[in-house]
Design a protein around this nucleic acid. Structure first.
Lengths: 203, 203, 203, 203
DNA sequence: GCTTAATCGAGACGGTACGTCGTGTCTTTTC
DNA sequence: GAAAAGACACGACGTACCGTCTCGATTAAGC
């Protein structure tokens, strides 16, 4: 994984690393994985597509999974406005909104294959999974926690609720269906999951 | 994937296929994937371990993922006693029992890596995922549905409940945590998920 | 090599060997070697072309070279009228006639590639070469010797001439040029070789 | 075949080709073909023996025959002192000397099998034969021609003699016997061929 | 502004595995 | 009991990538 991602704004003192090559590699990796899938993604292919020597990739990344990972990071650094989940005071409505948006993204052809590839990479490489947890999933999970805590303060959720269990209950049905394509990822499903999770299956 | 799995009892007249080789290949694949992981699992390695020519694998399976898949099938055909989920009349207790058992299995070193590998294979090959759905996950899901229907009859669950959503709500937190190693898979987690899913987070 | 070739006219008592298959194999081998060359000639290819099981070939021949060899035998058994070289009393004229005919045959596309193939087979397999010597080249060489002996009787050649050296001197330039394609195989060359061999390079 | 053979003395700027690997491959090919014969010579075997990746062979040579060919070239580049045939003024004696030496070389176990293999390769691949003609046989033939021309100047041979026919007449009996093992390659044979060729079979 | 060392593109290298083809042996079924 | 058919263990094919290693040629730093 690349040394330091977040302090791009600041100094960057000692490195003569070519940013043009870095971007070309990341873009090529993202584009390629969407075309051929993770299994057929190769370092050589990325290098050729990016117009870059193989060594330039090996110098900065330990594996194709790590390249792919950084391609995702670069993507989310582009947007990254979402510093918080919506909080209108109506938890159920807010969650439905969020899950519908997530489902839409997972249905988007541009992201489906690459994210599936990244998931495959993490399945086979625990260090990637840990990095994902630290850099992307962790922060997002904290946002989710914050929204649920807000609901606790508002009395919408019990104060002693285990937030990690709650988050899994709300979000994992979506990712689960997506990963194994075991059902449609539509708004109705998102709504049903939120409603059921909040009110319980028992009436 | 081999043509006919279930009619092993009957004739099998037209094929000169060697059953000894088939078993050796399946066993070797299962053992190897536990040792080296899915990414480093190779057809050549399986053939060598099984004492078999590569062609014998290529003749009957289209990919290493398909071999792995059949290795799992062979495994579950061995046991296959579980024709139903426990039904004591107490849904919550029964589900806790089942989820605890599932969690235990996912924690078992003998199955963790191979199942992770199979999941990776299915992520990269939709036809494998479909086959998995048809042959293993589908039947199991039907057992789950049956148990929930029984609970509906007993008045433990509302009659108009969407059973597919319910099943996802109950089981996906477990698989989700397992896949990305995002938390412990202990009995407490299993219990908490079942309780929350049934009673709702709002309670 | 097949057991007994020459007594085909007579009994054939104990063998249930299929003559149709034998002919089909020999024809297929001869045709195939003309199309793809010796290196790419395969037992499987011959069997497929002949509509015959591989085992039928392995049962009766030890190698693809042996099959090819028999294909040639079958060919020359068809003709085999030439029980003697022409003997008009004029040795030089007779030899020119014979060498021109040989050169013409070597130029014939139908025989060039197959004979080249057979030569390659003999280069790599001394037992084939020995068989060739015994069954085809030997008898032919005896015909040549007979013609030269006749010339000795007629006083055209010295009585103490080493006939084997003489035969090599007359015939090997032709085969040599043919094998390595080191020059044209036309009538002029044949004539020049005969003239030079008989009269000597010195004057 | 490698691009430039003769300008080894000069720069060689543009190629990053490893000379150590090249030599190892050539040596391995020559050694192996002497041990197992041409038919059982494999690229894989050469690579293994040379301690080299297969791709390094495929990168620089189109076939095993071409490798073998270069192995011979490398050999003859080592010696290559023979810039002319002996010329004592006595053509017959000189030719006997040369043919005896050639016969001795063909009898030498170190060269017999490899040269036979190279001949087989050329039989099956006309481009190899052409290259052989251009690089080895051609120059040698020029030396022969030069010696015969010298004999013409000295009045030992007629001025209008076709030198190509003469060369074939003198040298092909030797190669012919060698190739098909149709007789002994001793000094007596060499002497008889030279004497007969020069003086003619008709005494 | 000059130099000098890290980085770049390119690509050869020793390897491993790919998926295919042919070998020679074997077994099963048909004639 | 030979023949067609074809599965099998084996081994080589020729290709694709791996990750490492030179090669000059930029190229940006610090002297």
């Amino acid at each position: 994984m690349p040394a330091e991602p977040t302090d791009t704004r600041a100094s960057r003192p000692a490195s003569r690393r070519s940013d043009a090559s870095r971007r070309a590699i990341l873009d090529a990796a993202f584009a390629l994985v969407g075309e051929v899938g993770y299994a057929k993604l190769t370092i050589e292919g990325i290098a050729a597509r990016a117009g870059v020597g193989k060594q330039t990739i090996y110098r900065w990344w330990p594996s194709k999974g790590a390249v792919l990972f950084d391609a995702f990071l670069a993507l989310s650094e582009g947007e990254d406005g979402d510093t918080a989940l919506p909080d209108t005071g109506d938890l159920e409505a807010d969650l439905k909104l969020v899950l519908r948006a997530t489902a839409a993204e997972l249905r988007d052809a541009r992201y489906d294959e690459p994210m599936r590839a990244l998931t495959a990479a993490m399945l086979e490489d625990p260090t990637l999974a840990a990095e994902w947890e630290r850099r992307l999933d962790g922060p997002v999970r904290e946002l989710k926690r914050a929204r649920l805590r807000s609901a606790q303060s508002a009395g919408e959720l019990p104060a002693d609720l285990d937030l990690d269990v709650a988050i899994d209950l709300i979000w994992s049905p979506l990712t689960s269906r997506w990963l194994l394509r075991s059902g449609p990822l539509d708004d109705a499903f998102a709504d049903a999951v939120v409603a059921s999770a909040l009110s319980g299956l028992r009436s």
